[in-house]
Amino acid sequence: MSEDKEREVKGEGVDFSKRAFIKTALIGGIAVASGAVIAKKIVSNIPNTGLANASVSDELQQDRVMKDKEFVVMSKEEKDRMVQMFVSGYKYTA
């Protein structure tokens, strides 16, 4: 085992280049992959909390907006004027 290691450090051994490549590839692969997994985990967790908050906020917003509204009767004149505006303002543009 230790002999093996020594040879490795010294750069001895028949299949040095192959082994080194595999090692590098494996370790590098693991490093990149785990890094990516962690990054993905972080990234996907942030919008999830955000999503919940955002939906809640959307939900509450309509309450808030409607609370400021008031329901009022339109007078005959108001209605007629409005209809007139719709009719005269109509323009067909393809």
Binding site: A52, S55, V56, D58, E59, L60, D63
Partner: peptide
């Protein structure tokens, strides 16, 4: 359905 993150409709 209550949106995720809203536990109940008590605000209403």
């Amino acid at each position: 359905v209550l949106p995720k993150g809203m536990k109940n409709a008590a605000h209403e």
